[in-house]
Design a protein around this nucleic acid. Structure first.
Lengths: 211, 211
DNA sequence: AACGAAAATTAACAGTGTTAACTTAACGGT
DNA sequence: ACCGTTAAGTTAACACTGTTAATTTTCGTT
């Protein structure tokens, strides 16, 4: 009932109020099961007022993902200070998996749910920024190992290595998130599967003396 | 307009008619974007007639997944006839990825979309059946390599190896399906990523003389 | 020919995301 | 102190969704 011309800051606060509450609901009930009206009721506004800040439900979802991508990059950033490049790579993989399994529903939104491709203008996240881009962080860590001479001599494509390491860790986490409850497969403990994957990848990538 | 008391066979035919058309639509437009009315119109019936054969949309989806799991197992079965166990393992991974990328939306339904855990009664699929259970097939292939002495001497858990190989291939395919269009990452070609993953896994698993 | 049951249909319901039309409140200029 | 202008927020409404209830159509059997 009380419309006030809001300052830039108040607008931003309302935006994050929507984002935070929408995320809570999405994460606990799944995206499709949550209605705009439900989100609105939770913050004491009308459903249509959300549309004053987000074009549609998809845009809201993307905004949530954006903040979560940032959160992931922030979480992983401290790992970059580990001095030894190989230890850094190992810890990076562990940190990534830890994030995925600690926030499985965030992770599902970020990496397992189809949405419109990244759009530089409407995102707010900066690509190739070590503070905001977790893939860039990974690529840097891989590059460091390469420059330290850690990889086998026939490996030269840091992007390819990064993408493969990522895929390996993602595969373990994604199957865990989707199929952990399913007893069609007699799953080995998740931490065992994670270290197995990591050892396999490293033993394929690193020179023998580093294994 | 013409209702006839149907024989058991005609009922089954109608069921698969629904399944096949629903799958086509799900696969080309995504599950959420397809309506029951649309499926019905496509086969020339009214929306409600679908409910005479399936409890709801979720049940229809599950039925589709069931037939797709069977299709995957059938597709992979011929690979099992390759004589050399290691070549068999390699071809199995390739065949799996080929299926995933040829039918990305089937694959998404099967392995990337959360649904109720497998239920033995309502499924119709037989676990540990080499004709119907692709995971069982993979485990068998891994077991064969193990018994042929192909793996490194400290590897003894066939389930763990199978689950890790699966996760590796799944990771590459899943990221491809979800993020191929996204230019946040400068993706290497998908076939390069797949062979890279496979080589990495194999070089970590196999004795050196087999690489 | 008439009945009963199966098969299919139409009508309707409670919700959904979203848009249009309308209200309220705060500000700037006179 | 007043009056527009404008932004913020609301309610009403639309087209559509999955799904259920009520209704019609058709057929095999008596």
């Amino acid at each position: 009932m009380p419309p006030k011309p809001k300052t830039k800051l108040a607008r931003e606060q309302f935006r994050t109020l929507i984002i935070d509450n929408a995320r809570d609901l999405f994460v606990s009930k799944g995206v499709e099961a949550v209605t705009m009206r439900e989100i609105a009721k939770r913050i004491g506004y009308s459903a249509t007022s959300i549309y004053l800040h987000f074009a549609d439900k998809e845009a809201l979802l993307r905004a949530i993902c954006d903040t979560d991508f940032l959160k992931l990059a922030t979480t992983l950033k401290e790992i970059l200070s580990i001095p030894d490049p190989i230890q850094r790579l190992i810890a990076f993989g562990e940190g990534y998996a830890k994030f995925a399994l600690a926030f499985p529903n965030h992770y599902r939104l970020m990496f397992m749910t189809p949405h419109l491709p990244y759009n530089a203008e409407c995102s707010g996240l900066q690509q190739n920024n070590a503070e905001q881009d977790a893939y860039f962080q990974l690529k840097t860590v891989v590059q460091d190992v390469y420059e330290a001479g850690g990889f086998k001599t026939d490996l030269h494509d840091a992007d390819l290595i990064a993408q493969t390491v990522w895929a390996g860790m993602h595969g373990v986490c994604a199957l865990q998130i989707i199929m952990a409850e399913d007893d069609w497969v007699q799953w080995r403990p998740i931490d065992v599967r994670l270290t197995m994957m990591q050892q396999l990848l490293l033993s394929g990538l690193l020179k023998e003396k580093y294994e």
